[in-house]
Design a protein around this nucleic acid. Structure first.
Length: 537
DNA sequence: ATCCGAGTTGGTTTC
DNA sequence: GGAAACCAACTCGGA
């Protein structure tokens, strides 16, 4: 029996290890490979804080367009092409299913709330019309729903318990496609080519520096190959040992944006790592190894799909209720790389220019914004990352913000990254800072991490007067970090004594009280017995 | 219900 | 320069 198949690409922008595509080609009379260009994701939004659309800054849009071009080329090499349509995805797919008399619809299963809603609508429509729907799990190593089932209906909340539950992932599909079924009749007038950034309406946007990372499956496979080539490096990889200040040769694989869009199959990556491990005497293990990194990704996917309101504080059962302050000035200083702490600001500049920075650099700025210094709500930082990162991924981004803000998973709020000394140990002369904040390039080494401490004549000689050419620190780390510890202690105490859930009113009340003068806690050993009211002075 | 012990990556000082 | 010891000290999932 022969059918007309529609392969709906969203993530999974690849040919290799693509079970949805494989199935779409089986006994297909015609195959229509489709991607819908969603205006929400692509069209300019001038009210956003950075150039780009409502959903994404320009770097990730560019990455997506490159990925689409590459996919189109690969499909053409197999005798087909990518058919692009502008419009609302649900509406567009429904229309195409009718128009082309589609009997089989294939798309990769996607766990994000936005996607689940979108795909549910399409799926309902297809079922009612008698269209076969095939929606395999191929974005992740495991089916998150299966992991939750194995764990008794709840997601495991620690990495170790997660590891104990999951087994070995299934191997990637063998690459067997040598040619694709032909397209049917299409009305060319409506099909668009991959647009350029300019065609999308960004012609007048001036961006000084674009991300150095190019999108697409070809680039992903090249990068994977290059990473796996250095077997010694792969075998000895330990995430915490990498230098967050390395930018010309990043300390990690930078495969995350390719995994995010599915230009690279996580299963292929996993297999590649196993192959290297077989050839070496010993290798590092999760959580710090490269396999461990892939499993962190899985962990967050499982918890995210199994936790209602995962992406917010309110109504999120695994999230500590904390009275974050509403100081927008401090938040904007952080977002705009104007905190006056060169290391923090340099990371924020790299985020904006490259859409990527090292994991530990992300830690440093996330800690600084939330529990470490500014006490700003993690959701605000999450939104900035979500927009600017080329690898931003709903489950992983939210998971890490929960982590870093000590709202979930990690609770040692006394461990605060220093905005001055943390990066110094990796990059004492401040090469990273000088690159991303050129105004500081001539600041002497002794002052590069704390330029406000430089004597005025030194500042003048370096062509960088603090307060004029580069901001003074917006806060005093020594003072605010102590205050943050106190506030976190109070918030934790409230969370543990609250009978069921902390109400918004209780939280607001605590927040107002915490803004008052700090109390002295002289005998720290007594802290355990204290109730949150004891912190209020 | 209670308790154990593990937890991806802090800072500072010392050797 | 890197490792180890110390500081001050925690939480809570899972058994």
């Amino acid at each position: 029996m022969e059918v007309n198949s529609l392969m709906w690409f969203r993530k999974g922008l690849r040919i290799h290890d693509n079970p949805a595509l494989d199935y779409a080609t089986k006994n297909a009379k015609h195959l229509y490979p489709v991607f819908v260009l969603d205006p929400l994701y692509l069209n300019p939004d001038t009210s956003a804080f950075s150039p780009g659309s409502k959903k994404s800054a320009l770097n990730r849009i560019q990455f997506l367009l490159e990925s689409l071009s590459d996919l189109d080329s690969s499909l053409k090499a197999l005798g087909s092409r990518l058919l692009l349509f502008n419009g609302d995805p649900v509406h567009t797919i429904k229309r195409l299913l009718n128009r082309w008399n589609i009997g089989r619809l294939c798309f990769e299963f996607d766990t994000e709330p936005y996607s689940l809603t979108r795909d549910g609508q399409v799926q309902d429509f297809a079922s009612h019309t008698g269209i076969e729907v095939f929606s395999p799990v191929s974005h992740t190593l495991f089916d998150p729903r299966e992991v939750i089932k194995k764990n008794g209906g709840k997601p495991p909340l620690t990495y170790q318990s997660f590891l104990r539950i999951v087994g070995i992932p299934s191997p990637p599909h063998a690459n067997t496609i040598s040619s694709l079924p032909p397209l049917g009749n299409i009305e060319d007038s409506e099909v668009s080519n991959v647009p350029t950034i300019e065609e999308l309406g960004y012609a007048d946007v001036k961006q000084e520096e674009y991300s150095p990372f190019r999108g697409g499956e070809s680039e992903a496979l090249k990068r994977l190959k290059a990473s796996l080539m250095d077997k010694d490096w792969v075998a000895n990889f330990e995430k915490p040992k990498g230098k967050p200040t390395s930018f010309e040769n990043p300390a990690t694989t930078v495969l995350s944006p390719y995994l995010k869009f599915g230009c690279l199959s996580s299963r292929l990556f996993y297999q590649g790592l196993q192959d290297v491990f077989k050839e070496v005497k010993k290798h590092t293990l999760p959580p710090v190894s490269l396999v461990g990194q892939l499993l962190w990704r899985e962990f967050f996917y499982v918890v995210a799909i199994g936790t209602p309101n995962f992406d917010q504080m309110k109504g999120n059962k695994i999230c500590k209720q904390i009275p974050w302050s509403g100081d927008d000035k401090l938040f904007i200083a952080w977002r705009e790389a104007q905190t006056g702490y060169p290391w923090i600001d340099a990371v924020m500049v790299q985020l904006r220019k490259w859409g990527w920075m090292h994991h530990l650099a992300r830690h440093a700025v996330a800690c600084f914004l939330t529990r470490g210094d500014l006490f700003v709500h993690w959701e605000k930082g999450r939104d900035v990352f979500e927009r600017l990162l080329i690898d931003s991924d709903w489950a992983i981004n939210n998971g890490n913000w929960l982590w870093l803000s000590c709202s979930s998973f990690f609770y040692q709020y006394n461990r605060i990254y220093s905005p001055t000394s943390f990066a110094k140990k990796y990059d004492p002369s401040g090469i990273y800072i000088r690159h991303f904040i050129p105004v500081l390039k001539d600041m002497p080494e002794d002052y590069i991490y704390e330029p406000w401490t430089a004597p005025l004549e030194v500042q003048i000689k370096a062509n960088c007067v603090i307060g004029r050419d580069y901001p003074k620190p917006v806060v005093d780390h020594d003072i605010v970090s102590k205050d943050c510890r106190r506030k976190m202690g109070a918030a934790y105490a409230m969370n543990s004594t609250a009978s069921d859930v902390v109400t918004g009113e209780e939280l607001g009340s605590l927040g107002r009280k915490l803004e008052k003068q700090p109390i002295q806690i002289s005998d720290t050993k007594k802290q355990k017995q204290l109730k949150f009211t004891d912190y209020l002075g």
